[in-house]
Amino acid sequence: MSIQHFRVALIPFFAAFCLPVFAHPETLVKVKDAEDQLGARVGYIELDLNSGKILESFRPEERFPMMSTFKVLLCGAVLSRVDAGQEQLGRRIHYSQNDLVEYSPVTEKHLTDGMTVRELCSAAITMSDNTAANLLLTTIGGPKELTAFLHNMGDHVTRLDRWEPELNEAIPNDERDTTMPAAMATTLRKLLTGELLTLASRQQLIDWMEADKVAGPLLRSALPAGWFIADKSGAGERGSRGIIAALGPDGKPSRIVVIYTTGSQATMDERNRQIAEIGASLIKHW
Score class of each variant (00 low, 15 high):
residue 12 P to H: 13
residue 15 A to G: 15
residue 20 P to W: 02
residue 20 P to L: 02
residue 24 H to C: 09
residue 25 P to Y: 08
residue 27 T to A: 06
residue 30 K to I: 09
residue 31 V to W: 02
residue 32 K to G: 09
residue 33 D to G: 13
residue 36 D to H: 11
residue 42 V to H: 02
residue 48 D to C: 07
residue 49 L to R: 03
residue 50 N to R: 13
residue 51 S to D: 15
residue 54 I to K: 07
residue 60 P to K: 15
residue 61 E to I: 09
residue 61 E to G: 13
residue 62 E to Q: 08
residue 62 E to D: 10
residue 68 S to R: 00
residue 70 F to H: 08
residue 73 L to T: 08
residue 73 L to H: 07
residue 74 L to A: 06
residue 75 C to I: 07
residue 79 L to F: 04
residue 80 S to A: 11
residue 84 A to Y: 10
residue 84 A to C: 11
residue 85 G to A: 09
residue 85 G to R: 10
residue 86 Q to C: 11
residue 86 Q to I: 12
residue 86 Q to M: 11
residue 91 R to H: 10
residue 92 R to Y: 10
residue 96 S to I: 10
residue 96 S to Q: 13
residue 97 Q to I: 14
residue 101 V to G: 07
residue 108 E to N: 10
residue 112 T to C: 12
residue 114 G to S: 05
residue 120 L to G: 02
residue 122 S to D: 15
residue 128 S to L: 00
residue 130 N to H: 00
residue 132 A to R: 00
residue 136 L to C: 04
residue 137 L to D: 01
residue 137 L to A: 06
residue 144 K to T: 14
residue 145 E to Q: 14
residue 153 M to S: 13
residue 156 H to L: 12
residue 160 L to W: 02
residue 163 W to I: 10
residue 164 E to M: 00
residue 166 E to W: 15
residue 167 L to F: 04
residue 168 N to Y: 03
residue 170 A to S: 12
residue 177 D to S: 02
residue 178 T to Y: 02
residue 179 T to P: 00
residue 184 M to E: 01
residue 191 L to D: 00
residue 192 L to Y: 06
residue 193 T to I: 14
residue 193 T to Y: 15
residue 194 G to Q: 10
residue 198 T to W: 04
residue 204 Q to G: 05
residue 204 Q to P: 02
residue 206 I to N: 08
residue 219 L to F: 09
residue 220 R to V: 03
residue 220 R to G: 04
residue 222 A to M: 12
residue 224 P to A: 05
residue 228 F to I: 08
residue 229 I to E: 02
residue 229 I to Y: 04
residue 233 S to F: 01
residue 235 A to Q: 04
residue 242 G to C: 06
residue 244 I to P: 00
residue 244 I to Y: 02
residue 246 A to P: 00
residue 255 R to F: 02
residue 262 T to M: 09
residue 265 Q to H: 14
residue 268 M to W: 09
residue 268 M to E: 06
residue 269 D to C: 11
residue 272 N to F: 02
residue 272 N to Y: 02
residue 276 A to Y: 10
residue 281 S to W: 07
residue 282 L to R: 01
residue 284 K to H: 09
residue 284 K to R: 13
residue 285 H to D: 07
residue 285 H to E: 10
residue 285 H to Y: 14
